[in-house]
Design a protein around this nucleic acid. Structure first.
Length: 110
DNA sequence: GCTGTGACTCCTT
DNA sequence: AAAGGAGCCACAG
């Protein structure tokens, strides 16, 4: 079955994040075919009441938790991620660090 | 229909 | 790394 609605595609993209891995809001939006709709992804996660939805695997583009540090939701997200083996340091995940500069992509590290 | 708001992102200091 | 500002879009009042 193919998701036709944008909402369905976004939720499907979130559910497609493998256990122990993370993705950015914008990344999820791109995978759903909706580039630039990161805020929509966030709003959908907040609105969804599906307990099976791995919302905790979605982070900001800089790899940080989107909630205010120390808030109950922040603590829950950190707990869920660590339970899956994801390294979280001061609210930041030690994984994704995409090259954000065009120079880096064109010229590379060398 | 205009305004404010937010689980966002990018660029520039 | 952090902070300020602009752009972005759906939704509530």
């Amino acid at each position: 079955m193919v998701e036709t609605s944008p909402e369905g595609r976004i939720l499907a993209a979130v559910r497609a994040i493998p256990r122990g891995e993370v993705a950015g809001y914008g990344e999820v939006a791109r995978r759903a075919g909706l580039p630039g709709r990161a805020r929509w992804v966030a709003r959908l996660l907040a609105a969804s009441d599906d307990p099976a939805l791995p919302w905790h695997r979605v982070l900001r583009s800089d790899g940080r938790i989107a909630f205010p540090a120390g808030s109950s939701q922040w603590r829950e997200q950190v707990g869920r991620l660590r339970r899956e083996g994801v390294e979280v340091d001061a609210g930041r995940v030690r994984a994704m660090r995409p090259a954000r500069s065009l120079d880096a992509e064109v010229w590379g590290p060398g």
